[in-house]
Computed example of a mutant assay.
Amino acid sequence: MFKRLLSLALVFGAVSTAPPLYAQSVCGDRDSVIDQLESRFGEVHAHSGLTGPGALLEIWTSPETGSFTVLMTRPNGSTCVMTTGEHWLDRAATMPVMGDPA
């Protein structure tokens, strides 16, 4: 367990000093990646959908900091961080509902 956490810490630490994430992919066990997003970055699952090839695309966001992470989980179970960023704006949460008198 300690080896896995240390490995993830090194991977996420390397990501912060590496070239832009779109130039690379960080992949790992889905449970470990999700645990890091929740505990370290305070991100929660915001949106998800299935791609044509059957991969699960997810967006995780932090309402407090505005950070976001886009994950893709392939049918074989491998989860990859596709990109990360800041200043996430959830337009659906800020737009009025049709017919809403407010």
Rank of each mutant, 00 (worst) to 15 (best):
residue 102 A to W: 12
residue 89 L to R: 07
residue 7 S to Y: 12
residue 102 A to Q: 10
residue 9 A to Q: 15
residue 4 R to F: 14
residue 43 E to T: 05
residue 91 R to S: 12
residue 30 R to G: 03
residue 63 P to G: 06
residue 35 D to T: 02
residue 27 C to R: 01
residue 57 L to S: 07
residue 47 H to V: 08
residue 95 M to N: 09
residue 17 T to K: 08
residue 3 K to E: 13
residue 35 D to M: 02
residue 12 F to E: 03
residue 37 L to N: 00
residue 17 T to P: 04
residue 92 A to W: 09
residue 54 G to L: 03
residue 65 T to F: 04
residue 97 V to Q: 13
residue 41 F to K: 14
residue 83 T to E: 06
residue 90 D to Q: 05
residue 20 P to E: 04
residue 65 T to M: 08
residue 33 V to D: 00
residue 8 L to H: 14
residue 20 P to Q: 06
residue 40 R to T: 09
residue 70 V to P: 04
residue 23 A to D: 14
residue 10 L to N: 06
residue 34 I to M: 01
residue 79 T to W: 01
residue 55 A to G: 06
residue 92 A to G: 05
residue 28 G to P: 01
residue 1 M to D: 15
residue 1 M to E: 13
residue 59 I to L: 13
residue 36 Q to M: 10
residue 19 P to R: 10
residue 74 R to L: 13
residue 72 M to K: 14
residue 29 D to N: 14
residue 87 H to T: 03
residue 71 L to G: 01
residue 39 S to G: 11
residue 22 Y to T: 07
residue 93 A to M: 06
residue 96 P to E: 10
residue 56 L to F: 04
residue 75 P to G: 01
residue 28 G to M: 01
residue 59 I to Y: 15
residue 94 T to D: 11
residue 47 H to Y: 15
residue 102 A to I: 06
residue 45 H to D: 10
residue 93 A to T: 03
residue 90 D to Y: 00
residue 84 T to E: 14
residue 34 I to W: 01
residue 36 Q to H: 14
residue 64 E to D: 12
residue 24 Q to H: 13
residue 101 P to L: 03
residue 15 V to Y: 11
residue 72 M to N: 06
residue 85 G to Y: 05
residue 63 P to V: 07
residue 24 Q to D: 08
residue 11 V to H: 12
residue 63 P to W: 05
residue 84 T to F: 07
residue 92 A to L: 05
residue 40 R to M: 05
residue 57 L to C: 08
residue 5 L to A: 15
residue 47 H to P: 00
residue 81 V to H: 02
residue 67 S to P: 02
residue 88 W to D: 00
residue 4 R to A: 07
residue 44 V to C: 08
residue 3 K to R: 10
residue 78 S to P: 01
residue 21 L to Q: 13
residue 50 L to W: 14
residue 63 P to A: 09
residue 89 L to G: 03
residue 27 C to A: 02
residue 16 S to K: 09
residue 68 F to Y: 15
residue 11 V to N: 06
residue 48 S to M: 02
residue 98 M to P: 09
residue 97 V to S: 15
residue 58 E to H: 06
residue 69 T to D: 02
residue 74 R to P: 03
residue 61 T to L: 08
residue 76 N to A: 08
residue 7 S to F: 15
residue 90 D to T: 02
residue 16 S to N: 13
residue 18 A to T: 11
residue 8 L to G: 14
residue 22 Y to I: 07
residue 31 D to S: 10
residue 18 A to M: 12
